[in-house]
């Protein structure tokens, strides 16, 4: 196996991992920073969400790249038999989905003041 082949194999599942990770950090982060952002700028949460949505989408991009390179194997839908490309496709979907969840949380932090109880 050459290095070029190994590289996409290593990261084909990046989207599956990065999306949920970014979302988890966003959830805990805004929560933990609510007190702080109430006293200073009200935009802390929104900025963090924007950054983390990009992180989730980066997962999608890496997985999409792995799909394009074939991720080491062919994948035909009905038969199966290309697990890496398959996982890479899941990564593409997962990154987008979690970016959307983060975007919805961004909307929440724009609309609701961190001071409101």
């Amino acid at each position: 196996m050459t290095a070029a082949e190994r590289h996409p194999k290593l990261l084909y599942w990046a989207g599956v991992a990065l999306g949920p990770l970014a979302w988890g950090i966003n959830l805990q982060g805004i929560y933990a920073l609510a007190h702080f952002s109430c006293e200073t700028t009200k935009l802390t949460g929104a900025i963090m969400s924007a950054v983390l949505a990009v992180v989730a989408l980066a997962g999608t991009a890496i997985s999409a790249r792995a799909v394009r390179r074939g991720a080491g194997a062919e994948w035909t839908d009905a038969q199966g038999g290309g697990p890496r490309t398959f996982m890479a496709w899941l990564g593409v979907g997962s990154g987008v989905l979690f970016a959307l969840v983060i975007a919805n949380q961004l909307a929440a932090s724009l609309m609701i003041s961190p001071c409101l109880r």
Binding site: L100, N104, A107, A108, M111, S113, L116
Partner: peptide
């Protein structure tokens, strides 16, 4: 589905803001 739930989320946040206004 996504559009619907995003729309409903906005409705919910707006309602929340009004209901808990001090």
């Amino acid at each position: 589905t996504l559009a619907i739930v995003l729309g409903l989320s906005i409705v919910s946040y707006a309602g929340q803001r009004t209901v808990f206004a001090k």
